[in-house]
Amino acid sequence: MNADKTLDCVGLYCPMPIVKTAAKIKEMKPGEVLEVVADDKGIKLDMPAWCKSTGNECLGIEESGGEYKVYVKKK
């Protein structure tokens, strides 16, 4: 998936990937896509939940080799 920005959260546990995503999304323009790379399994449920309550769109999660790439589209 193509993304406008990437955020490296490898090695970080909850709540840091979410806190960093929120800060990054704030800097971006509506419609832009952020790729969050993380290795904390919790992100699989946390990011969709965060998107649901902030109104941003979770486009999908790609999983490979213990890493998760989550795509978030700013509303």
């Binding site: 709540p15 929120a22 800060a23 965060w50 902030t54």
Partner: peptide
């Protein structure tokens, strides 16, 4: 603080 910062990041 984990919940406070997460709550703030959720708007």
């Amino acid at each position: 603080f984990m919940l406070a910062t997460t709550g703030a990041s959720m708007g």
